[in-house]
Amino acid sequence: MLFRGILIDCFQKINQERTSSSIYNLLIGKKAIQTIQDARFYHMGNYYGIYPGLTKAEYLQQLQQLLKLDYLLEADGEEQKLQITEKGKAWLTSYKESLDGFYGSKYKNMLEPFKQRLLLFIQTFTNTAKNHYRFIPITDNHDIERFIKDFYTQYKHRSTEVLQQLYKELEQALSGLSDLEASMFVDRITSYYSYGSSLQQLSQDYRLSIPDCYLTLQKSFYHLLNVQTNSENYPILKLFTKHLHTAETPLSQTAQFTLRLLQKQHSLEEIMKIRRLKANTIQDHLVEIAMHEDEFPFFDYLDSAIYEEIKTAVYNKQTYRLKEIKNHVHPEISYFQIRLALILYKK
């Protein structure tokens, strides 16, 4: 149900302005500028990158089910544009609360290492505390192993103490979730005492689909990250976020080059010449830069009258669809200007 709810919520938010692939890209956390823009414009940042392992086939299969259940339908017979039905809307309203608790954009690039560090920590400390040194680590990610090794040398003399403190923190944090969510989280943990459940086993034990189990677990990890951000009562959990950054995806190499030229006060035309690139390409770079840089000189490219005109069109038409906006502003206003205006509007 969780997976279903997230999909319907997304399709309601994009309101047929974007294709169904754009939702897929959002869920797997594609680094493309378009996907990041979608997440912002349509307020779906919380779902960004929450399901990195989702395959296209699984995604399409789930969409098929939603079509079959009449929660979604193909708008104008277009496969790529899905519309939410009345039935879907009603269902979503009743389910909406369960969709809270994802912080995809906020903890992007942090969730995966945090999760693996925590799990490998528990496996390592519970085993070594029992003098059991032969176990196959749950992850063979080099960086994670390195981190836990350092952590181990530092804390091995106090392992019982650390485990007790971790219990306190996890107990407190998980109490903020439902019993089912907390229980599933505990079952997934690998320790000296037991090897954690696979998704298939969770799916059997809790009678939920595999994607729902996966997303429920993800939600718990987001919850842990969130509580340690907002409170001082989670010193151990905080340790597992050491040196992790929510940093925005850095600018692409090619956009960085353009940025450097820009900083040297070269004009758009000059940059085109220097880089032997088309105007369109350079404009793409500028849009990328505009999203990342706080100090972007928007009004070098659009004057305030144009900006107001675009804003009005967005407001009147209630849309972020470029084509739609273009049709309702002065023909001389370019797509490039509309894209910049939208970024500014959202900032």
Partner: peptide
């Protein structure tokens, strides 16, 4: 038989804290 509400007990066992 398995009860989600028992997760605290299970978490203790998982973290080797049961006896203590």
């Amino acid at each position: 038989a398995f009860h989600p509400a028992d997760w605290r007990k299970k978490l203790q066992r998982t973290l080797n804290l049961e006896e203590a």
